[in-house]
Design a protein around this nucleic acid. Sequence first.
DNA 1: GCCGTTTTCGGCCCGACTGTTTTCAGTCG
Length: 576
Amino acid sequence: MKNAVLSELFDQMADIMEILGEDKFRINTYRKVGRIIGDMPAEVETMLATGKLAETPGIGKSSLAKIEEFVKTGTITAHKQLLSKIPPTLLELLTIPGVGPKGAKAVYERLNVTTIADLKKALADGSVAQLPGFGEKKAAAIQRGIEFLEKSTGRIRLDQAMEAAELVCAFLQNTAGIEKIQPVGSLRRRVETIGDVDILVAAEKGEQIVKAFTSADFVQEVLAAGPTKGSVIIRTQTTPVHVDVRVVPGESFGAAAQYFTGSKQHNVRIREIAVKAKWKLNEYGLFQGDKMIAGPVEEEIYTKLGLDYINPLLREDRGEVEAAKSHSLPELIELGDIKGDFHVHTDASDGRASIAEMAEAAKKLGYKFICVTDHSKSSAIANGLSAKELAERIKQIHKLNDKLRGITILAGAEVDILADSSLDFDDKLLADLDFVIASIHSGMGSAREKVTTRTLRAMDNPYVNCIAHPTARLIGQREPMDIDITAVIKHAAETHTALEVNAHPYRLDLKDVHCKMAIEAGVKLAIGTDAHSVEGLGLMGFGVATAARGWVTKADVLNTLSLAKIKAWAKAKRPK
DNA sequence: GCCGTTTTCGGCCCGACTGTTTTCAGTCG
């Protein structure tokens, strides 16, 4: 929790310095520090106490002092001083698309605008358009920016971004003159939320492609349309989505894919290597003087720079560049490695399909097993099973397994961790199950110690094999619990308990950096879709990508094991 | 503010699009 606040403070300092017109490289440093802190898997106090923070590249003396001050006092003097130099509400203007630090400074100094409400008034009476460097069109763009901000929920979920990308790619497939299409940007990296969807296209006649794209049926508003780039808002089933299409010649396709996939920080690192070799890297290729030495194929950009190819899922500047240099990149888990699903609901609780239907669907996905994990009785809202119903269910599963061919159903449960840290079923019943996942569904807003203790005690139970959605966040809807994830991971390792990577795009919990922490501590991961229907089983890819973003390999994941090994793994924790 | 196979000072990634401009600044990614 503290990391997020601290990260925000550094970012705010950068914003303010930008408004004040200070040195851009210094500003960039503050942003970078903010990002490093935001990405840090462990709490900043821990990182500081263990000395790891001081060793982190990008964090120097000055930033370290500010962080120490924050940990001790909860504030940063430099931040307060900066904040005193501008009206604090001015920062909200920066969230408007089309308004940057220079624009915010101008409307403040010349029109005394300090809030979005002020700005709306100034737009209405025409005074913004009168400002030097502004004009009617710019004022209209800001107006649209405010409207967009007011109706949009900000970033969208991965599944929503995928839907938009599929819609646009299908359209481009049928557009004449296109050689190749590739979704790039944060979607290709499978970041948990997406700002806008970027699609890269190889074609000779860019202007025609952009024209076709920006006049497609699904386009709601055209934001920009040039010879190589079209930028629009499209309508999807659930939400408006900002989509950019970039067109490059085929000979530049690899370089452009690398460039537009990002992340920005990863690209900065890659380009630094190019600059050191006295080369130039941009979206058109890698150049030695005027001579292109790589461009058509993305892999070659990395190879020429002396790096192993870096999977897009790792391109976050979290050590992947160093690992690529020293040939020590991990062999990431892939969807094809998955032999089953650990978190599946059926119509016995709040799912829609029967056990048999779910098993058949899983078999079609090529799985060897599913673990049926219906809710326990305390989750009344989810129609949780009573002890008696679960006992009956286990018998049904055994009978069904006798009939089924090619797939096995593991008898499981998603048992509630109650407020007093006890479990919703007694050990005798749990002992009859093959695999037990436990999770918190109530009191998620409780204090850190409370939710952490509940989770640790649940892991102490010899029949609990996995903690499901350990932070209980719902992306865009509910903050994660204030849980001590470092303690949870440590105890998972101590108690031979797996942690779930919940694959549902609403959850992605554990998230990527937590996955990395977990495997570094030797904890096994179990990926589960939390499917409540046959279609829900198809969400596995989101979980696999999230794990891979956390540097997870096949060996770290229980889903890749044979049924016999999974059963043995679960049994190992039980009383002999 | 950070950093070092051009090291302790002097650099710090690169380009597209738009709008307001007579050659470029601001914003965005």
